[in-house]
């Protein structure tokens, strides 16, 4: 396992010239990616007047202020804090539920034989291509009939079922890369199918599970569309719904809006940072054949 990885690495790195080119490309992408973020950040920590007059990129004059953040968090009309709390209430179960269900489904697809397995899997992949907008009307009526409109549970269920297919797909590939011999050894050692899954497969798949969880959490956190359609009580609104309300009625208060965006961004960012090691391992494991 280790050997293979090392081999791949030397293949990638090769000559100094190649390193230079790769570095240049990486830096260009990195700068393009981070510039808007820097813009928002600069806007959020300066008085609005300064940004409008000189642009966020000019450094003189530069006045540092946290006023935007304080205003955004403690806005008497639209509480961003409440929005953050609601987002956590939605995002945490909407991550754990689909991961649990999809892990079981994915293991089934990866290791067990079923007469129509191929077609079933193809159907899942096919239906993943259906856009949200196409499903929202039936989902809306379904939740209405279940009396789950405008409830946390309703949105959690929708996000969970939206997450299950892609996580299944992701984890199936991850599981099928795990060495089958370990599972066979466990079966010979006396484990039942479920014990094999719980004691041997799951611990080995932790990087994959974390990768999937981080992506799903970020997706649910960043979702605006489902929340917009299914939650209308201001007390239950998630942070992405609160943000546009910070815009103001007659003029756009960019300072307030950008500080709100930074606050909303913080949770997924921290999660990426915290699980970065596993997250990368999950994808590396994905990219290489073992």
């Amino acid at each position: 396992m280790k050997k293979l990885y090392r081999f791949r690495r030397t293949g990638l790195i090769g000559s100094p010239f190649k390193i230079l080119i790769l570095n240049i490309i990486a830096w260009i992408i990195g700068i393009l990616w981070i510039t808007p973020f820097i813009g928002i950040f600069m806007t959020s920590i300066r008085p609005f007047r300064e940004v409008v007059l000189y642009g966020w990129w000019s450094l003189s004059p530069f006045t540092f202020t946290l006023k935007n953040y304080i205003d955004a968090l403690f806005n008497p009309m639209f509480s961003l804090g409440r929005g953050l709390l609601n987002s956590f209430i939605i995002a945490i179960p909407s991550t754990l539920i689909p991961i649990t269900i999809a892990a079981l489904t994915a293991y089934g697809f990866a290791r067990f034989s079923l007469p129509i397995k191929k077609y079933l899997f193809a159907t899942i992949l096919f239906l993943m291509a259906v856009p949200q907008q196409m499903t929202i009307i039936p989902i809306f009526f379904l939740l209405k009939d279940l009396h789950l409109l405008n409830t946390y549970l309703g949105l959690i269920l929708v996000h969970s079922s939206w997450g299950i297919p892609w996580i299944t797909f992701f984890l199936r590939n991850y599981f099928s890369l795990l060495p089958a011999e370990l599972e066979e050894a466990a079966r010979v050692d006396g484990a039942s199918d479920f014990q094999v899954f719980r004691i041997v497969v799951l611990p080995l798949a932790i990087p994959g599970l974390i990768s999937a969880a981080v992506l799903q959490f970020a997706w649910v956190w960043n979702d605006f569309f489902f929340a917009l359609m299914l939650i209308f009580d201001p007390n239950k609104m998630v942070v992405t719904q609160m943000l546009p309300r910070l815009k103001g009625q007659y003029q756009v208060d960019w300072g307030l809006l950008s500080s709100g965006s930074i606050i909303a961004m913080l949770a997924p960012l921290l999660i990426y940072g915290f699980f970065n090691k596993y997250y990368m391992r999950g994808f590396r494991g994905w990219a290489m054949k073992r």
Binding site: P179, E181, E184, A185, A186, R187, V188, D189, A191, V200
Partner: peptide
């Protein structure tokens, strides 16, 4: 009969030790 009920011990080619 499932492998777990056969009371056999097996050593695999790459030993298949549980790495965790």
């Amino acid at each position: 009969i499932e492998p777990r009920d056969r009371n056999i011990g097996m050593v695999f080619q790459n030993w298949a030790l549980y790495p965790h």
